[in-house]
Protein backbone atom coordinates (compact mmCIF):
# COMPACT_ATOMS: atom_id res chain seq x y z
CA UNK A 1 0.00 0.00 0.00
CA UNK A 2 1.03 3.56 -0.76
CA UNK A 3 2.99 5.11 2.10
CA UNK A 4 3.04 8.65 0.77
CA UNK A 5 0.50 9.96 3.21
CA UNK A 6 1.98 9.05 6.56
CA UNK A 7 0.82 10.97 9.60
CA UNK A 8 2.33 11.42 13.01
CA UNK A 9 -0.22 11.21 15.81
CA UNK A 10 1.36 12.44 19.03
CA UNK A 11 4.72 10.87 18.29
CA UNK A 12 3.48 7.64 16.72
CA UNK A 13 4.05 7.18 12.99
CA UNK A 14 1.01 5.90 11.09
CA UNK A 15 1.62 4.80 7.51
CA UNK A 16 -1.73 6.32 6.55
CA UNK A 17 -4.39 8.29 8.47
CA UNK A 18 -6.78 5.34 8.89
CA UNK A 19 -7.44 3.05 11.85
CA UNK A 20 -10.23 0.66 12.75
CA UNK A 21 -12.89 1.88 15.20
CA UNK A 22 -12.88 0.02 18.51
CA UNK A 23 -15.22 -2.94 18.67
CA UNK A 24 -15.48 -3.49 14.94
CA UNK A 25 -12.19 -5.29 14.36
CA UNK A 26 -11.41 -8.82 15.52
CA UNK A 27 -7.90 -10.11 15.03
CA UNK A 28 -8.61 -13.57 13.63
CA UNK A 29 -11.77 -12.73 11.73
CA UNK A 30 -10.88 -9.31 10.25
CA UNK A 31 -7.35 -10.55 9.69
CA UNK A 32 -8.71 -12.93 7.05
CA UNK A 33 -9.70 -9.99 4.89
CA UNK A 34 -6.76 -7.62 5.28
CA UNK A 35 -3.32 -7.28 6.79
CA UNK A 36 -3.63 -5.10 9.90
CA UNK A 37 -0.17 -3.69 9.21
CA UNK A 38 -1.54 -2.03 6.07
CA UNK A 39 -3.50 0.45 8.16
CA UNK A 40 -2.16 3.47 9.98
CA UNK A 41 -3.14 1.65 13.16
CA UNK A 42 -5.62 -0.91 14.41
CA UNK A 43 -7.78 -0.13 17.40
CA UNK A 44 -8.84 -3.17 19.36
CA UNK A 45 -12.07 -3.92 21.21
CA UNK A 46 -12.54 -2.41 24.67
CA UNK A 47 -10.72 -4.44 27.30
CA UNK A 48 -11.37 -4.46 31.06
CA UNK A 49 -9.57 -5.85 34.11
CA UNK A 50 -11.60 -9.06 34.30
CA UNK A 51 -13.53 -10.86 31.55
CA UNK A 52 -16.95 -9.30 30.85
CA UNK A 53 -19.82 -11.35 29.43
CA UNK A 54 -21.56 -8.35 27.84
CA UNK A 55 -25.30 -7.85 27.46
CA UNK A 56 -28.06 -10.35 26.65
CA UNK A 57 -29.14 -10.79 23.01
CA UNK A 58 -30.53 -9.42 20.72
CA UNK A 59 -27.60 -7.01 20.77
CA UNK A 60 -28.04 -5.67 17.25
CA UNK A 61 -30.83 -3.78 15.48
CA UNK A 62 -30.77 -2.26 12.05
CA UNK A 63 -31.80 1.39 11.65
CA UNK A 64 -32.07 3.59 8.55
CA UNK A 65 -28.50 3.84 7.19
CA UNK A 66 -27.13 2.66 10.50
CA UNK A 67 -27.38 0.22 13.35
CA UNK A 68 -27.85 0.04 17.09
CA UNK A 69 -25.55 -2.17 19.12
CA UNK A 70 -25.69 -3.12 22.76
CA UNK A 71 -22.82 -5.58 22.88
CA UNK A 72 -21.88 -4.21 26.29
CA UNK A 73 -18.12 -4.63 25.89
CA UNK A 74 -17.93 -8.42 26.05
CA UNK A 75 -14.21 -9.08 26.33
CA UNK A 76 -11.83 -11.70 27.72
CA UNK A 77 -10.05 -9.36 30.15
CA UNK A 78 -6.74 -7.55 29.87
CA UNK A 79 -4.49 -10.55 30.61
CA UNK A 80 -6.01 -12.64 27.83
CA UNK A 81 -5.81 -9.61 25.53
CA UNK A 82 -2.11 -9.06 26.22
CA UNK A 83 -1.24 -12.71 25.73
CA UNK A 84 -3.50 -13.09 22.70
CA UNK A 85 -4.64 -10.35 20.36
CA UNK A 86 -1.99 -7.80 21.27
CA UNK A 87 0.78 -10.36 20.81
CA UNK A 88 -0.56 -11.47 17.43
CA UNK A 89 -0.99 -7.91 16.16
CA UNK A 90 2.47 -6.78 17.24
CA UNK A 91 4.00 -9.91 15.69
CA UNK A 92 2.25 -9.00 12.46
CA UNK A 93 3.83 -5.55 12.53
CA UNK A 94 0.67 -3.56 13.22
CA UNK A 95 0.56 -0.25 15.06
CA UNK A 96 -1.83 -0.96 17.91
CA UNK A 97 -4.20 1.28 19.84
CA UNK A 98 -5.55 -0.61 22.84
CA UNK A 99 -9.07 0.53 23.73
CA UNK A 100 -9.66 0.51 27.49
CA UNK A 101 -12.96 0.01 29.32
CA UNK A 102 -13.77 0.11 33.00
CA UNK A 103 -16.52 0.16 35.60
CA UNK A 104 -14.54 2.36 37.97
CA UNK A 105 -11.56 4.71 38.08
CA UNK A 106 -9.54 1.95 39.69
CA UNK A 107 -10.36 -0.45 36.89
CA UNK A 108 -9.29 1.99 34.15
CA UNK A 109 -6.10 2.70 36.06
CA UNK A 110 -5.38 -0.99 36.56
CA UNK A 111 -5.89 -1.84 32.88
CA UNK A 112 -3.77 1.11 31.71
CA UNK A 113 -1.02 0.17 34.12
CA UNK A 114 -1.02 -3.39 32.77
CA UNK A 115 -0.95 -2.13 29.19
CA UNK A 116 1.78 0.39 29.97
CA UNK A 117 4.10 -2.58 30.49
CA UNK A 118 3.38 -3.94 26.99
CA UNK A 119 4.38 -2.86 23.50
CA UNK A 120 0.97 -1.40 22.62
CA UNK A 121 1.67 1.79 20.69
CA UNK A 122 -1.16 3.88 22.11
CA UNK A 123 -4.01 3.70 24.61
CA UNK A 124 -7.55 4.85 23.93
CA UNK A 125 -9.72 5.49 26.95
CA UNK A 126 -13.34 4.58 26.20
CA UNK A 127 -15.26 6.89 28.50
CA UNK A 128 -18.20 6.95 26.16
CA UNK A 129 -19.78 3.50 25.88
CA UNK A 130 -23.54 3.87 26.27
CA UNK A 131 -24.03 0.14 26.84
CA UNK A 132 -22.62 -0.54 30.27
CA UNK A 133 -24.49 0.35 33.39
CA UNK A 134 -21.61 1.45 35.55
CA UNK A 135 -18.67 3.32 34.14
CA UNK A 136 -18.46 3.82 30.41
CA UNK A 137 -20.39 6.88 29.36
CA UNK A 138 -20.80 8.09 32.93
CA UNK A 139 -17.11 9.06 32.85
CA UNK A 140 -17.44 10.90 29.59
CA UNK A 141 -20.41 13.15 30.19
CA UNK A 142 -19.24 15.17 33.20
CA UNK A 143 -16.15 17.34 32.75
CA UNK A 144 -14.88 17.06 36.34
CA UNK A 145 -15.33 13.29 36.49
CA UNK A 146 -13.58 12.94 33.15
CA UNK A 147 -10.67 15.19 34.15
CA UNK A 148 -10.12 13.24 37.37
CA UNK A 149 -10.09 9.91 35.52
CA UNK A 150 -7.75 11.11 32.77
CA UNK A 151 -5.44 12.61 35.39
CA UNK A 152 -5.24 9.32 37.28
CA UNK A 153 -4.55 7.32 34.13
CA UNK A 154 -2.01 9.90 32.96
CA UNK A 155 -0.10 9.35 36.19
CA UNK A 156 0.42 5.63 35.50
CA UNK A 157 1.39 5.62 31.83
CA UNK A 158 3.72 7.36 29.42
CA UNK A 159 2.01 5.77 26.43
CA UNK A 160 0.36 8.21 24.07
CA UNK A 161 -3.14 8.55 25.52
CA UNK A 162 -6.22 9.10 23.36
CA UNK A 163 -9.47 9.96 25.13
CA UNK A 164 -12.58 8.88 23.24
CA UNK A 165 -15.41 11.33 23.65
CA UNK A 166 -19.14 10.74 23.86
CA UNK A 167 -21.51 12.62 21.57
CA UNK A 168 -24.26 12.28 24.20
CA UNK A 169 -23.52 15.70 25.72
CA UNK A 170 -24.74 19.24 25.21
CA UNK A 171 -21.35 20.81 24.54
CA UNK A 172 -18.63 18.39 23.52
CA UNK A 173 -15.94 21.09 23.54
CA UNK A 174 -16.20 21.30 27.36
CA UNK A 175 -15.37 17.59 27.67
CA UNK A 176 -12.62 17.94 25.07
CA UNK A 177 -11.04 20.79 27.01
CA UNK A 178 -11.26 18.86 30.28
CA UNK A 179 -9.55 15.81 28.75
CA UNK A 180 -6.82 17.91 27.16
CA UNK A 181 -6.11 19.78 30.39
CA UNK A 182 -5.91 16.51 32.31
CA UNK A 183 -3.23 15.19 30.01
CA UNK A 184 -4.79 13.57 26.93
CA UNK A 185 -2.35 13.43 24.02
CA UNK A 186 -5.16 13.12 21.46
CA UNK A 187 -8.93 12.93 21.29
CA UNK A 188 -11.10 10.56 19.30
CA UNK A 189 -14.75 11.09 18.44
CA UNK A 190 -17.49 10.19 18.15
CA UNK A 191 -18.59 7.14 20.02
CA UNK A 192 -22.14 5.96 19.36
CA UNK A 193 -25.27 8.03 19.99
CA UNK A 194 -27.70 6.58 22.49
CA UNK A 195 -30.75 5.26 20.64
CA UNK A 196 -33.67 2.86 20.76
CA UNK A 197 -35.94 0.86 18.46
CA UNK A 198 -39.32 -0.68 19.20
CA UNK A 199 -40.78 -3.59 17.26
CA UNK A 200 -44.23 -2.32 16.33
CA UNK A 201 -45.57 -5.87 15.98
CA UNK A 202 -44.72 -6.86 19.56
CA UNK A 203 -44.61 -3.41 21.13
CA UNK A 204 -41.28 -4.35 22.71
CA UNK A 205 -37.79 -2.89 22.30
CA UNK A 206 -35.75 -4.84 19.74
CA UNK A 207 -32.61 -4.80 21.89
CA UNK A 208 -32.62 -6.89 25.07
CA UNK A 209 -30.75 -3.98 26.67
CA UNK A 210 -33.63 -1.69 25.56
CA UNK A 211 -31.24 1.05 24.39
CA UNK A 212 -28.10 0.84 22.30
CA UNK A 213 -25.49 2.90 20.50
CA UNK A 214 -26.26 4.26 17.04
CA UNK A 215 -23.49 4.10 14.45
CA UNK A 216 -23.06 4.15 10.69
CA UNK A 217 -23.70 6.74 7.96
CA UNK A 218 -26.80 7.99 9.82
CA UNK A 219 -24.56 9.68 12.41
CA UNK A 220 -21.94 11.08 10.05
CA UNK A 221 -23.22 14.70 9.93
CA UNK A 222 -23.32 14.79 13.73
CA UNK A 223 -19.80 13.38 13.87
CA UNK A 224 -18.42 15.84 11.30
CA UNK A 225 -19.96 18.74 13.21
CA UNK A 226 -18.49 17.58 16.52
CA UNK A 227 -15.04 16.96 15.03
CA UNK A 228 -15.17 20.45 13.55
CA UNK A 229 -16.11 21.99 16.91
CA UNK A 230 -13.51 20.03 18.87
CA UNK A 231 -10.63 20.36 16.40
CA UNK A 232 -10.79 24.14 16.54
CA UNK A 233 -11.07 24.25 20.32
CA UNK A 234 -8.10 22.05 21.33
CA UNK A 235 -4.47 21.83 20.29
CA UNK A 236 -4.07 18.03 20.43
CA UNK A 237 -4.76 15.89 17.34
CA UNK A 238 -8.26 14.57 16.72
CA UNK A 239 -9.14 11.13 15.34
CA UNK A 240 -12.53 11.48 13.65
CA UNK A 241 -15.09 8.73 13.16
CA UNK A 242 -18.78 8.12 12.64
CA UNK A 243 -20.26 6.57 9.53
CA UNK A 244 -17.19 6.62 7.30
CA UNK A 245 -17.91 4.29 4.38
CA UNK A 246 -15.59 5.66 1.67
CA UNK A 247 -12.39 7.63 1.16
CA UNK A 248 -14.48 10.67 0.41
CA UNK A 249 -16.29 10.35 3.74
CA UNK A 250 -12.88 10.15 5.43
CA UNK A 251 -11.77 13.28 3.57
CA UNK A 252 -14.78 15.13 5.00
CA UNK A 253 -13.42 14.48 8.50
CA UNK A 254 -9.90 15.61 7.57
CA UNK A 255 -11.40 18.81 6.15
CA UNK A 256 -13.26 19.28 9.44
CA UNK A 257 -9.89 19.29 11.20
CA UNK A 258 -9.25 15.64 12.08
CA UNK A 259 -5.67 14.38 11.77
CA UNK A 260 -6.77 10.79 11.22
CA UNK A 261 -9.96 8.76 10.94
CA UNK A 262 -11.41 5.46 12.11
CA UNK A 263 -13.66 3.07 10.19
CA UNK A 264 -16.20 1.13 12.26
CA UNK A 265 -19.63 0.05 11.06
CA UNK A 266 -18.43 0.01 7.43
CA UNK A 267 -16.09 -2.85 8.37
CA UNK A 268 -18.97 -4.90 9.76
CA UNK A 269 -20.72 -4.67 6.40
CA UNK A 270 -17.66 -4.98 4.19
CA UNK A 271 -14.81 -6.68 6.08
CA UNK A 272 -12.11 -5.07 3.92
CA UNK A 273 -13.58 -1.55 4.26
CA UNK A 274 -10.75 -0.07 6.39
CA UNK A 275 -8.05 -0.81 3.78
CA UNK A 276 -10.39 0.23 0.97
CA UNK A 277 -11.05 3.57 2.69
CA UNK A 278 -7.29 4.04 3.19
CA UNK A 279 -6.66 3.36 -0.49
CA UNK A 280 -9.44 5.67 -1.67
CA UNK A 281 -8.30 8.40 0.69
CA UNK A 282 -4.73 8.01 -0.60
CA UNK A 283 -5.96 8.52 -4.14
CA UNK A 284 -7.87 11.65 -3.14
CA UNK A 285 -4.92 13.08 -1.21
CA UNK A 286 -2.61 12.51 -4.18
CA UNK A 287 -4.39 15.47 -5.74
CA UNK A 288 -2.30 18.49 -4.61
CA UNK A 289 -5.36 20.69 -4.26
CA UNK A 290 -6.96 18.22 -1.88
CA UNK A 291 -3.73 17.90 0.09
CA UNK A 292 -3.52 21.68 0.36
CA UNK A 293 -7.12 21.91 1.55
CA UNK A 294 -6.40 19.36 4.30
CA UNK A 295 -3.29 21.29 5.38
CA UNK A 296 -5.32 24.49 5.45
CA UNK A 297 -7.96 22.81 7.63
CA UNK A 298 -5.23 21.73 10.07
CA UNK A 299 -3.73 25.22 10.20
CA UNK A 300 -7.13 26.78 10.69
CA UNK A 301 -7.93 24.51 13.60
CA UNK A 302 -4.44 24.47 15.17
Amino acid sequence: MDDSYRVNICGVEWRNPVTTAAGTFAVAESGKYFDPAELGAVTTKGVSAEPWAGNPTPRIAETPSGMLNAVGLENPGVDAYIAGDLRVLKDRGATVISNVAGHSEDEYVYVCRRLDATDTDMLELNVSCPNVREGGMAFGTDADTLARLVGKVRAVTDKPLIVKLSPNVTDITKLAAAAERAGADALSLINTLLGMRIDTRTGKPILANITGGLSGPAIRPVAVRMVYEVARSVSVPVVGMGGIMTGEDALEFLLAGASAVAVGTAALIDPAAPVRVARELGELISNPQVAAAIDAARVRTA
Binding site: G23, A28, T57, E74, L268, P271
Partner: peptide
Amino acid sequence: EARMGCGYGACVGCTI
Protein backbone atom coordinates in the same frame (compact mmCIF):
# COMPACT_ATOMS: atom_id res chain seq x y z
CA GLU B 1 -30.66 -18.23 14.27
CA ALA B 2 -29.39 -14.97 15.75
CA ARG B 3 -29.52 -11.28 14.93
CA MET B 4 -26.25 -10.50 13.23
CA GLY B 5 -24.31 -7.29 12.89
CA CYS B 6 -21.52 -8.55 10.67
CA GLY B 7 -22.01 -12.25 10.00
CA TYR B 8 -18.27 -12.95 10.09
CA GLY B 9 -17.21 -12.74 13.71
CA ALA B 10 -16.16 -9.13 14.22
CA CYS B 11 -18.97 -7.46 16.18
CA VAL B 12 -19.81 -10.01 18.89
CA GLY B 13 -23.48 -9.29 18.27
CA CYS B 14 -24.75 -12.82 17.70
CA THR B 15 -23.66 -14.65 20.83
CA ILE B 16 -25.39 -17.67 22.31
